[in-house]
Write a protein that binds this DNA or RNA. Structure first.
Lengths: 145, 145
DNA sequence: CGGAATCCGTGATGATACTG
DNA sequence: CAGTATCATCACGGATTCCG
């Protein structure tokens, strides 16, 4: 029946998938996946600097659809990492910020992001070596034939 | 033709997608996605204890298809985080271990995983509160009508 | 045993339009 | 502005098969 975009029923009103949740794995692995998810990482890092409004966050991250940003924020909010402050005004104004738990998570994630940045040239060098090696023995194999 | 499973042409012999690579974003964001990818995280953490053979690693992680494990390992190898030692014997024997770079990455990832485990009950509590709150004002809205 | 290659379902993602 | 709803699309990832 192609339940595209998995639907959640009353008992478990979870917002969106954000990496399949159906598996019966240790629950903390799921939180890990929320935190390390594509947009989760970027949201946490952004919100670490300061509080953001929805569209503002969207622009800051760039190339994220409204849908995915909403989904990510809802998941992180449900996990208690993000605080959502909706002000009942016209036009609507919603501010997102980190909770204490979220700040801790953000620090971990940020450390990882900083490491990545620091070691980037090492990675690039490794890639060139890898690609070169593959090219080399692809050629050698062609010489056989 | 529905290019399922994006194809890479000679200039960029990258193994597999492992989260879409086509986007022109800062390259270190890609490495971050490799490292935080679903299986990338688990592979790094496992290999941190010791070296593993392919099937051994597969069993240790559990519920990972050969294909995804291969893809993950190849991506991490290309990024210079994992070392692949293929011994030309029959039957084939291939050992995977972390490089120095990989060990650094694994430490970051492990810190995150440990944090997740430590704060798990906080997250669970937050979820219950969130779900309860939603249930409550779903009821309130029903009272309106 | 360790992969490489293929087929294929379904779920994650993005574009668009609509609501309050 | 901050979402929600709907739809179209591909990439993830599993199963299977073949090779060395």
């Amino acid at each position: 029946m192609a339940v595209s975009e998995s639907v959640f029923v009353p008992p478990a009103p979870a917002p969106g998938p954000l990496l399949s949740e159906q598996e019966a794995m240790c629950p903390h692995r799921l939180v890990l996946e929320h935190v390390t998810s594509r947009w989760g990482v970027l949201v946490l890092i952004r919100l670490q600097e300061r509080s953001y409004r929805f569209s503002e966050l969207r622009r800051a991250i760039g190339r994220v659809s409204e849908k995915m940003l909403t989904q990510t924020l809802q998941t992180l909010e449900r996990d208690g990492l993000v605080h959502r402050d909706a002000k009942p005004v016209i036009p609507p104004r919603v501010d997102y910020s980190l909770t204490d738990l979220g700040r801790e998570a953000a620090e971990q994630v940020r450390a990882l992001a900083l490491w990545t940045e620091r070691r980037m040239d090492g990675v690039l060098a490794a890639r060139q070596a890898y690609d070169e090696a593959r090219r080399a023995d692809a050629e050698a194999r062609r010489a056989d034939a």
